[in-house]
């Protein structure tokens, strides 16, 4: 089971800030494909991966990264702090 979190416009398109996902996905990209196959709102949120960033257990990562041992995945647009 994975905790999946969404921030900013990704959260708005998906319609919730977090959910628990039962998945066997090997990588982040596999997880994205699984989610996109579920419902159009995921398709809308994940349409352009170049516009998205991903963090695994609160560390910035990338879409090729394996999910083994990961508990928390977060998807969000490029950050705009400062």
């Amino acid at each position: 089971m994975l905790d999946v979190m969404y921030f900013a416009w990704v959260r708005e398109r998906i319609g919730e800030p977090r959910e628990t996902v039962a998945t066997e996905a090997a990588t982040v990209a596999d997880l994205v494909e699984e989610l996109k196959a579920r419902e159009p709102r995921y398709e809308a949120a994940f349409a352009d991966l170049s516009a998205l960033r991903v963090a695994l257990d609160q560390e910035l990562s990338d879409f090729d990264a394996p999910l083994a041992g990961v508990r928390e995945v977060a998807f969000f647009p490029p950050m705009t702090g400062g």
Partner: peptide, 23 residues
């Protein structure tokens, strides 16, 4: 580094509605 590596996102509310600030 805070500008592009700290996980904050800004949304501006103006006369034409709300818009996320793009990096």
């Amino acid at each position: 580094y805070l500008k592009s590596r700290a996980p904050f996102w800004k949304k501006e509310f103006g006369p034409d509605g709300a818009e996320w600030v793009a990096a």
